[in-house]
Amino acid sequence: MQLYNKLSSKEREELIEQAGEERLTLSFYKYYHLDKPKNFRDYLFINWNTLDVLGRINIAKEGINAQLSVPAKKFDQFKHFLDGIDFLKDVRLNIAIEHYDKSFLKLKIKVRPKIVADGLNDSSFDVTDKGIHVDAKKFNELIEDPNTVLVDMRNHYESEIGHFKNAITPDVDTFRQSLDIIEDDLKDHKEDKNLVMYCTGGIRCEKASAYYKHKGFKKVYQLEGGIIEYARQIKEKSLDNKFFGKNFVFDDRRSEKISEDVISKCHQCGKTCDIHVNCANDGCHLLFIQCEECAKKMDGCCSDVCQDIVHLPYEEQKRMRSGRPAGNRKFKKGRSPVLKFK
């Protein structure tokens, strides 16, 4: 019985190319008490592997958070399987507006302490006492209300390439950091302002809305389905688009274009640009914004040091990485001092 990947990313990529079939990129989450998350994890892997599902999925005692790639022709089978699980029946699926067949190249299902690393003590408040979910139409109305404070619950590297009109975008590296900053900034408006939140797919707002209600905020709202669902609704219902730029996504696409606006700049030369890349040096892998000119000049690297390394023989590069942690800088996501225009 296969419970883990047996193919490398390169092997899987070749199979996808040979198949030549359209794949759908989608995501979903559900908070639910799981008594045996490891058993559920194995159950999902066995069934999804047979459907050629790929993606990154976190399972915890509090539920599931999944980003997936599914063969389009097997979507109905996949949906039927989900509906056969009581707590996932009719779960909202956020389907990407931009399709890329190689958004994921492995099926990784991991058991984690939480489905989102939020750093919160859930026993201190009622996580089910959430804010009011609103669709794109109501969201647009709320954010035009002068009595509304709109907050982006994502991290700096996400909001840097795209965010909603008039949104507060905390300059933070983690979701947990933003919670205290926002509470402190809005401490005098817990009763008189509409606190409206959004994130990529909605999952961070689920926990944040309950947290802020616990902290005394009276009018708490969240964009249902996040930016992903908002983009779908404005297109289907011909609504005004209040989002500027791209939506950062956590797969190999790295982003989805929501509007034609480019609001960020290359971290190396300062030119208008919104293309996220990872440094070509596997020992670094820093996530940053790089324009095409700098990519060519720097061989896809973040610095002269990394550029020198990628010109070394491959075995020498492997030797240099041996025994070292998996590149601490990879998690700094644009904070590195080698980037002039971060």
Rank of each mutant, 00 (worst) to 15 (best):
R232K: 14
L286I: 14
C291N: 03
K265G: 00
N241M: 10
H285D: 14
C273R: 08
Q222H: 15
C294D: 09
E260G: 01
D252L: 12
Y212D: 03
K213S: 08
H276V: 11
A280R: 14
T272M: 08
N241R: 11
A280S: 15
K207G: 01
R253I: 12
E292Q: 10
E315D: 15
H276S: 15
I289P: 05
C279E: 06
F250N: 05
K246A: 07
Y221P: 06
E224Q: 14
G283I: 07
Y211G: 00
Q317I: 15
Y230Q: 07
E260R: 02
Q268A: 06
G226P: 07
V310R: 00
V220C: 04
I258Y: 07
R319E: 13
Y230G: 05
E260H: 03
V310E: 00
F248D: 05
C294T: 03
D282L: 12
C279P: 12
K207M: 02
S264V: 04
Q233E: 12
M298N: 06
Q233M: 02
C279G: 11
L287Y: 12
D299Y: 05
H311E: 08
A295E: 01
D261Y: 04
C266D: 05
S264C: 08
A231D: 02
K318L: 15
T272N: 07
R232P: 03
H285S: 15
Q222T: 07
D299V: 01
G283P: 10
G245V: 09
V305F: 15
F217E: 02
G216Y: 04
Q307L: 14
F288W: 00
L312G: 00
K296H: 02
A295Y: 03
K237T: 11
E316S: 13
K237V: 09
V220D: 04
D308A: 13
K257F: 02
R254S: 01
F288I: 00
R319K: 14
R253K: 15
A231Q: 03
I263R: 03
K219G: 04
N247E: 09
R254W: 04
G300P: 11
K207L: 04
F243A: 12
Q290E: 01
S238D: 13
E260K: 07
N247F: 06
I234A: 10
I289Y: 07
E292P: 02
E236R: 02
G245S: 11
S259H: 11
C301H: 01
K297L: 11
E293R: 04
F244L: 13
R253A: 11
V310K: 01
K296E: 10
C302Q: 05
C291M: 03
K257W: 04
L223A: 08
E236D: 08
G300E: 09
C306L: 15
K318S: 10
E236S: 03
E256F: 00
D282I: 06
E224H: 14
G270Q: 14
I234R: 09
G300H: 10
R319A: 13
S209I: 03
